[in-house]
């Protein structure tokens, strides 16, 4: 017995070729997708408002809360931000050195910090002064205005 293909027009042949190509594309596309994996991620940043120098929103009530009996004075410094610009916390850049009355250098540590409005925060201050106990007793809280950046 001989099997003969049925009659087929050239147009039918073209249709079959198109179907084959389409089938290939449909099959290959997911394959390529699997060979190149893609992943998305989110990115975020928060820009906070800095308090310019000269605004009334400056540091208040800054004092040395604790004095060591001898050696460089070390104490906590309280900073409270009053006033303000909006409800966001403000960025505070501490100066490297401050000078207190008597020309004694005062170094503040803690680096830039965010201060919540109206809240007080404590940082550490080192004051290089005479190490005598007498002078330490005579030392009074100092008021220093910190410049905001």
């Amino acid at each position: 017995m001989t099997l003969r293909p049925g009659p087929q027009s050239p147009a039918a042949g073209c249709r079959l070729g198109a179907r084959t190509a389409a089938a290939l594309l449909l099959t290959i596309a997911p394959a390529w997708a699997a060979w190149a994996a893609n992943g998305g991620a989110t990115a975020s940043a928060t820009v906070v408002e800095a308090v310019p120098i000269g605004l009334p929103a400056t540091a208040l009530d800054l004092y040395l809360g604790q004095l060591s009996p001898a050696g460089p004075f070390v104490g906590s410094v309280l900073i409270r931000v009053i006033g303000g610009i909006n409800d966001e916390p403000v960025a505070l850049q501490l100066p490297a050195r401050q000078t207190v009355p008597g020309d004694a250098p005062l170094t503040l540590e803690g680096g830039p910090a965010l201060l919540g409005r109206g809240l007080a925060t404590a940082i550490t201050a080192h004051m290089s002064m005479s190490s005598s106990k007498e002078q330490a007793r005579e030392a009074q809280p100092v008021a220093i205005t910190i410049a905001f950046n």
């Binding site: 060979w35 893609n38 991620a41 940043a45 820009v47």
Partner: peptide
Amino acid sequence: AAAQTLQNTGALSFGAFSAG
């Protein structure tokens, strides 16, 4: 290409800063 996937498990964050 057996099940090659790339899944995000953590976001990129720059934290907070002031611009100056």
